[in-house]
Amino acid sequence: MSEAVTLRCNVNGSDVDREVDARLLLVEFVRDVLGLKATRVGCHTGDCGACTLLLDGAVVKSCLVLALSAEERAVVTIEGSNNLAEIQAAFVAENGFQCGYCTTGMILTAAELLRKSPHPSDMEIRHALVGNLCRCTGYDAIIAAIHRAAERRGAVGYAVGSRQ
């Protein structure tokens, strides 16, 4: 049955080559094997969004992904993301977090939204955050933070990507 299998992928710009058990989830691979602890686990059912990271450039809930499905693909966690400083500053300015557990998922999801829609409406922001739960803030401050980040960016576009 399942023995350790080799997983080759790219994480935050570096090639990774590890023996893993087929039963390992992608979120467990980044946290427990690679020690990248900013990606969290809140539910294991796909509901909370705390485990959000980028797989081939798109945000995914990494508790729904088997680690071996990342073979030959690019994984970017918030530790390896650049161009997030303005969003992070906006979360601080608007008190967009309290305990911070949901924050990495919120920020990566907000970054993908702003990449696709640089000046989102309230409804667009709420729609984009429908899969990210926060037990502390009541969401208003998070929505305000994303508006603030959009305003600060002004006409300057940006991308989410891995630090090379």
Binding site: G46, A58, V59, K61, G105, A128, G131
Partner: peptide, 11 residues
């Protein structure tokens, strides 16, 4: 469909 982009990009 609900679930957010983290689901829409996968499912």
């Amino acid at each position: 469909v609900t679930g957010g982009p983290g689901l829409w990009n996968l499912a």
